[in-house]
């Protein structure tokens, strides 16, 4: 019997400090057994349990895209026991990853559609995976217009800044980067909260346009009315939830929202689905 609790052993290949507060680091992992990479076949929007022996496991969204081969990437905010220890680990250290877990963004539904990505703060990880996935030369033709609205408190708090700049220069993706405030006189992008920029820049709703929203609760709370006003149907608004998790496979019982487990039935739900569920997240 295959043991779904057994992580694949990985080696830390690279660690990048992403933000000016140094609380967010991206870890690039390489599988110790090359065959495990194939078993870890994933879709953008899924997550994995990062396993640190002696400390425990944390559920983290996969920040790399399935089109990127030879490694997997996770961006981790330093918050608790495991993530704090992980931030002290070094290139070459051995740990584990378990997954892929959860359902992913609905790529079968999104094919042939316009996609509006709305992200805030450090909840941009699986959105980065989605953008890289859609921009891959083999996939770009499968999607119509791609808009990205991404905001952080300051320019230094944006994740993946080199990639954001590279995407800005492309003509097959419309980037709308914003910050709450900037002291840098050379800041050449937007200033304003995500809901405001969404209202200004997001395309009007139609049946072929889907919005994917990921961000802190306050951003979601104020962005949703904007999308409502613009006519986005609730089954065209896609969200990714977080809850405390342990097993990641729908067994340990803590991450449920109503009868759905965020780890197994989610983390991705449409707003239409969430409307029928208790607000326990």
């Amino acid at each position: 019997m295959q043991n779904p609790y057994l992580p694949y052993p990985v080696r830390i290949d690279e660690i990048i400090t992403e933000t000016e507060d140094k609380n967010l680091k991206t870890f690039k992992f390489v599988f110790l057994n090359p065959a495990d990479e194939e078993k870890f076949a994933y879709r953008a929007g899924q997550f994995a349990e990062l396993s640190v022996t002696g400390k425990g496991e944390i559920p983290i969204g996969i920040a790399s895209s399935p089109t990127e081969k030879g490694f997997v990437k996770f961006t981790v905010n330093r918050v608790g026991l495991v993530s704090t220890f992980l931030h002290s680990m070094k290139v070459g250290d051995i740990m584990g990853i378990r997954g892929p877990l959860g359902n992913s963004y609905p790529w079968d539904v999104l094919e042939g559609k316009n996609v509006v990505i709305i992200g805030g703060g450090f909840a941009f990880t699986t959105l980065r995976a989605s953008i890289v996935y859609m921009l891959d030369p083999a996939n770009r033709s499968k999607f119509k217009e791609i808009n990205v609205i991404y905001g952080a408190r300051t320019p230094g708090m944006l994740l993946y800044r080199d990639e954001l700049a590279a995407w800005e220069r492309r003509d097959d993706i419309k980037m709308h980067i914003t910050v709450d405030g900037a002291t840098d006189p050379d800041w050449k992008y937007n200033v304003g909260f995500v809901p405001t920029i969404t209202e200004q820049k997001a395309p009007q709703a139609d049946s072929d346009t889907y919005a994917i929203i990921c961000g802190p609760p306050i951003m979601i709370k104020f962005t949703q009315p904007v999308l409502d006003k613009m006519g986005y149907a609730h089954d065209h608004i896609i969200m990714s939830l977080e809850n405390r998790m342990k097993c990641g496979i729908g067994m340990c019982g803590r991450c449920n929202v109503g009868k759905e487990f965020v780890c197994k039935d989610g983390p991705v739900f449409t707003l239409a689905q969430l409307n029928t569920m208790p607000k326990e997240y």
Binding site: E57, K246, G253
Partner: peptide, 15 residues
């Protein structure tokens, strides 16, 4: 419902 915990004594641990 269950929890998963790591416990270490010296250099040997259990999950």
């Amino acid at each position: 419902c269950f929890d998963i915990q790591d416990e270490v004594r010296g250099t040997s641990g259990i999950r």
